[in-house]
Design a protein around this nucleic acid. Structure first.
Lengths: 174, 174
DNA sequence: AAGTTTTTTCAATTTATATTGAACAAACTG
DNA sequence: CAGTTTGTTCAATATAAATTGAAAAAACTT
C-alpha cells in the first residue's frame, strides 16, 4: 500500500504509527527521490532509517511504513548496494538490522555512476558511429552534420569533466 | 506509435523514412533522455532537428518520426519553453518551422532550474519544520535528530553551491 | 465571413514502472 | 532433523507517465 505523507492538498490519512519528526524527515527524502526519479518506497525506507536513533529490522520498516515485504526487501537490497544503508548486527537479535549511511559524497558518487554514467557509457561509440555516417554525406549536409558532431564531442568532454568536480564539491562540507 | 530506433536486442523495424545519420543522432538524444527521465518522443524531436540542415515544420516531424499530432505539439511546446528549440519563419511557408538551439549552457541551466531546483525550492521550509519537530523531542533522540538536521543543512548548502559551478563548466567549451 | 490549413487541447488508451503478496528458500533453534 | 522465523523472488496487480487522436480553436486566405 505504501505510505501517505499528506501534503496540503492531499486528503489521505498519515500512517498512524509515525511520529511527526519522522513524517517530516521521510517527506524530505521522498521529495528528493521524485527529483531523481527513484521509487518513493526506497526514499521512505531511507528517510525513516535516517532519523532513527537505532538500527531497524525489515519487520519494523514494513509495519511502520505500511510497505509490503517485497518492497521492503527490494528497497533494502537496492539501498545497500548503493551504499546508502548498512547492516548492523544487534546483540540478542536474530533479524538483520539496518541503519542509514549518511555520507553525501559516496552516496552521490555511487548514484551518479549507477544511474547516470551507465547511460553515458557508450556515448563514445555512438559519436563514432555518427561520425562514420556523416562521412557518407555530401555538400552542405555533411558540413552541417560535422559541425554538430564537433559540438556533441565538446559537450561530452565538458560533461565528463563536471562529474568528478561535483563530487569534490559535495565532499567538502560534510 | 512513436519511433523505433532498434538496438541490438530490439527487433521492431526502424522507421523507413529516416536516414542512418538521423537514426544515429536521434538514438544519442533518446539515450540521453532516459538518463534524465524525459519522454522519449521529446528527445526524438530534438534529435531530428539537431541534425537537420534546415528548420522543419511539425508535419514533417510527425511524418518522419511517426508521432501523433498531440505528442509533436506538446513536445515542441515543451522544448520551446526550455529554450531547446526556436521557431523560424520560412519565406513562402505558412507553417511554423522549428530548429534546434544548440547551446549547452543555457539548455542545462534551464533544465536544471525546471527539473531540479523546483524540487528543492521548499527544502528550506522543510528543514525548518524538521527543526521544530526536533525541538519537541528529548534526550538521546533529540540529540540524534539534531545532528542529522545539521548534516542535512550542510548537504543542502553544498548542493546549491554546485549548480552554478556546473553551469560555468558547461559553458566553457561550447 | 465562409472555407481551409495549421495547431492546441484533453479524455481515453497504451506503455512503463512500482508495488504487492503468495510461494519459495535460507537461516537459525531446540 | 522437524519446526520456526526471517528473507527473497517473481508473476500478478496497481499506479504513474507518455502517447494518441478526435474535437475544438486559432491562424490564415480568398
Amino acid at each position: 500500500m505504501g505510505l501517505n505523507l499528506a501534503e496540503k492538498s492531499d486528503t489521505r490519512p498519515v500512517a498512524s504509527s509515525l511520529e511527526p519528526v519522522e513524517v517530516e524527515a521521510i517527506n524530505l527524502f521522498v521529495q528528493f527521490s521524485r527529483a531523481l526519479g527513484q521509487p518513493r518506497s526506497y526514499a521512505e525506507i531511507y528517510g525513516l532509517l535516517f532519523v532513527s536513533h537505532e538500527a531497524l529490522p525489515m519487520d519494523t520498516l514494513i509495519e511502520r511504513l505500511g510497505l509490503s515485504k517485497g518492497s521492503a526487501s527490494q528497497g533494502l537490497k537496492y539501498l545497500e548496494e548503493l551504499g546508502a544503508v548498512r547492516t548492523v548486527y544487534v546483540a540478542g537479535e536474530r533479524r538483520i538490522h539496518y541503519e542509514a549511511v549518511a555520507e553525501l559524497r559516496n552516496l552521490a558518487g555511487r548514484f551518479l555512476s549507477q544511474q547516470i554514467l551507465t547511460h553515458f557509457k557508450d556515448s563514445g561509440a555512438r559519436l563514432e558511429r555518427l561520425g562514420e555516417q556523416a562521412q557518407k554525406l555530401s555538400g552542405e549536409r555533411r558540413k552541417h552534420v560535422s559541425a554538430r558532431l564537433k559540438l556533441l564531442r565538446s559537450w561530452e568532454r565538458n560533461g565528463r569533466r563536471v562529474v568528478p568536480f561535483v563530487l569534490k564539491m559535495l565532499g567538502g562540507g560534510s
